[in-house]
Design a protein around this nucleic acid. Structure first.
Lengths: 337, 337
DNA sequence: GTGAAAGCGCTAACAG
DNA sequence: CTGTTAGCGCTTTCAC
């Protein structure tokens, strides 16, 4: 067996013909005689010939690879996005390269260099929490590499976005709580420098306003993890007028809140209703199971990839960016009335 | 701005020198004059020159890419493995390409073709449940591409493996139950055509035997999902001599069992202890929180990648395969005594 | 119908 | 110290 994989040249030599003829035969070029084609194809098959994608990339200045940069893979939302990306990409003949930023801008910038070096045809990005400077993203654009941001998007770089409808989702969550009779609804929120955090808080506020309920700033606090909920929710419960519902910015926070509420001897949902934005399967297994807003990560991945592949196909960078929105859906389980 | 990215040629032309000089200057070759080096580096920086990894791959017959093929990304265990892979790979200057099989052999074979075409330097694989024929993996090997299997390994192909110590993990889980006073321990198991399923069952059996407890086949059933647990566990509880402990093959199954047990009015862990193999964060949020066997997916990814990179470095295929084992650890929470 | 040559970007051997 | 050449694998004019 040759060292390395079989090349067109190997086949050409064996058959006593030229490499170009083999190349044409393999792609069924009309000029080539049936006899030659058959011989070439037979040998290619017998020898397990696989076109060298690297050589093709170089020749065509097209790698058929898309890069994905996310904060962390170990996060149900992101892994479902990747799953969607991988599906669409492979259907279209693209391979997917993964880069984690681990919420660090430095890693993000490093990764961008790797993305640039790899000559990926396009990039899907969800920014790190730390990112405040966007030059590295601009550099991708400047090099003709289209970007689609998803979830954690970046308004400062002209590029396409796919986002979850955080505002509407939050609004509908709170609306649901209100319709079931809740009046004092607390919000455990994400940091406000993230668009996502702002939008969810806005949805919360607007739902209260629309229903003519007072907004009590004491009922709003930055709290977005299981442990933080364990730490901070007790203070909510000891308010003179304690809340009768909690809207949490993600499901783990909701689960933390649930656990605190139960430990305090309060019933869910009778005394306090709880609802969370979801990104995992935690909500199904808590007791009671949590009512949530399904974020459809998979869908986000699909949409973002479709958009990116379109941009790649267009082949130029002077397009008008669009923002596509994936709707959340309310999944009512047992933690709300 | 040029179309496409800056090349060595662009820099050479601008500076009126040859491409090879630029190449050498960029890698600080001792032959090149300081003046030239400075000029080249300055321009390279100003023009944001990035070496074209595709051209390098072609020239060196080395892509610096490793391929990862897993059943599903949306699975906490697998995403933590990928996270470990990505970390080590990027530290070593490798990029990571992701391929999902979705538990389908056909996709697995397709993906293998893509892996071959992409000229990846090595592959990390966790097999699909469906895979019974291993020729596609052999083809990778035959083409000089080292494989490291992890978790769902394949004994029929001569290659390295990294596995979780399912046997010892199961053994220690059951031992823990026995030490806390349980005598009738049920096992909700994975399908037995999977090595993992066999090993966990064996660990269970051996722990019982070692402790001179009877093995009751009625207490062993194939049941490895949340929904299946909801469906099948009631029959366990209605046995004339009902179990006083349940050892589940994964955490979602354990969570399902927990939910059934509680609905039946039994207390956990007083009446029935529950323990599960873990791969996620579900165990922390159930009530009571589940005692589990931590599988250290991240560690599996690290180890597998280290091994693969070693093989790639060795640069030949006549090595003696090794199997590395990642130990599980017992995390005692509230669902056992 | 088929072959020769050139080029994608880069580097290493060989020449000066 | 620097340039020329050739080649990694493939395709695509341009010849014949």
């Amino acid at each position: 067996m040759r060292s390395g994989q079989v090349t067109i040249k190997d086949i050409a030599k064996e058959l006593g013909i030229s490499a170009s003829t083999v190349s044409r035969a393999l792609k069924d070029h009309p000029d080539i005689s049936v006899k030659t084609k058959e011989a070439v194809n037979a040998l290619a098959k017998a020898w397990h010939y696989k076109p060298n994608a690297v050589a093709l990339s170089l020749r065509n200045s097209k790698s058929n690879v898309i890069g994905v940069m996310i904060p962390e893979i170990v996060h149900h939302f992101f892994s479902s996005v990747i799953s969607g990306i991988e599906k669409i990409a492979h259907e279209a003949g693209y391979n997917v390269m993964i880069f984690q930023s681990n919420e660090s801008v430095d890693r993000e910038m490093d990764n961008t260099q790797a993305l640039l070096s790899s000559r990926v045809d396009g990039v899907l990005v969800s920014m790190s929490k730390e990112t405040k400077n966007y030059d590295h993203f601009r550099e991708l654009r400047n090099n003709g590499i289209p970007i689609v941001f998803f979830d954690r998007i970046c308004n400062e770089v002209s590029s396409d976005n796919v986002i979850v409808d955080d505002y509407a989702g939050a609004f509908s969550a709170v609306q649901h709580l209100i319709e079931s009779g809740c009046k004092r609804i607390a919000h455990l929120s994400a940091p406000q420098h993230m668009l996502l955090g702002q939008n969810r808080l806005q949805g919360y506020r607007q739902a209260l306003i629309k229903n003519k309920l007072a907004i009590d700033e004491d009922l709003i606090m930055k709290c977005d993890s299981f442990d933080e909920a364990k730490e901070l929710v007790p203070s909510l419960l000891s308010l003179s007028e304690r809340p009768d519902a909690i809207f949490a910015v993600n499901e783990l926070t909701a689960a933390g809140a649930l656990s605190v509420v139960k430990k305090a001897g309060l019933r869910v949902p009778e005394d306090i209703s709880i609802i969370g934005f979801t990104d995992g399967l935690v909500s199904r297994v808590t007791d009671p199971a949590l009512t949530t807003l399904e974020q459809h990560g998979n869908e986000v991945g699909l949409k973002a990839t479709e958009l990116l592949l379109e941009r790649i196909k267009e082949g130029h960078m002077d397009y008008v960016p669009v923002t596509r929105v994936v709707k959340t859906s309310l999944v009512v389980r047992e933690s709300t009335k």
